[in-house]
Simulated scan of single mutants.
Amino acid sequence: MVWGCFAGGIKGPLIFCDENKEGNERINSNTYIRILNSHLYPFQRTVRELTGRAANFQQDNAPIHTTKITRLKKNKISRKAFPRTVDELKVALSDEWENLDYSIFEEVVSSMPRRINGVLEAKGGPTHY
């Protein structure tokens, strides 16, 4: 499991959740809080320093994102060999995160008013996003 963040065109870190758990603990809310404390809050401070504006934290609680915009079709993975171990996967994910086109972030941000309207129209129920 990985966690990442962005604010406008500023990309935050890509964090591997298993590296932020304690001992034999499962990845749970304690792990998540640890990640937010260690990585999100410093990123928000950096965004404020760079832009003079606060970065808002938003999450949608969806376990899987299946919308067209989040499939990242524009960023094709061009690896000769697919990862076979967890460490190789982490390297591959880090590389892809580093090379992610900023236009993906712009598309996500520009889709938010439409997504919010969909939630409002569904009165908080499921939407097609």
Rank of each mutant, 00 (worst) to 15 (best):
L93S: 12
P42G: 06
K123L: 09
K73P: 06
N28F: 00
T31H: 14
R53G: 00
S111C: 03
N24M: 10
E88S: 04
W97H: 13
G52P: 01
T31S: 10
I64C: 05
A81K: 13
N20A: 02
G12H: 01
R115N: 03
T85Y: 03
W3C: 09
A81D: 02
G12N: 06
L72N: 02
G8E: 08
R45K: 15
G52K: 00
I33F: 14
E88A: 01
P113E: 01
R34P: 03
Y41N: 14
V2P: 09
N30K: 03
T51H: 00
E22W: 02
A7L: 09
K11V: 11
A54D: 00
S94A: 10
S111V: 13
R84D: 08
E88C: 01
E22R: 15
A92C: 06
A55R: 00
I69A: 13
D95T: 04
E22K: 08
Q58T: 12
E96L: 09
C17H: 06
G4S: 13
N20P: 03
V108Y: 12
T85K: 08
L14N: 06
I35T: 07
H65C: 06
Y41L: 15
I27G: 11
G118T: 06
D18F: 08
N99C: 08
F82I: 10
F82E: 03
E19W: 02
N37Y: 02
I33N: 15
G8H: 04
G52W: 00
I116W: 07
P126L: 14
G52F: 01
K90V: 12
G125V: 04
E96R: 13
C5T: 11
D18M: 08
K21E: 04
E98P: 03
N56P: 02
N30Y: 06
E22V: 05
P113H: 08
G23H: 10
S111E: 04
I69C: 13
H39S: 00
R79P: 00
D95V: 04
I104M: 14
R115K: 04
N99K: 13
G12D: 05
D87Q: 13
N61L: 15
N30S: 07
K73R: 10
L120P: 07
F105L: 02
R115P: 14
A55H: 03
A55C: 05
I64D: 09
P83Y: 12
E19G: 00
H128L: 12
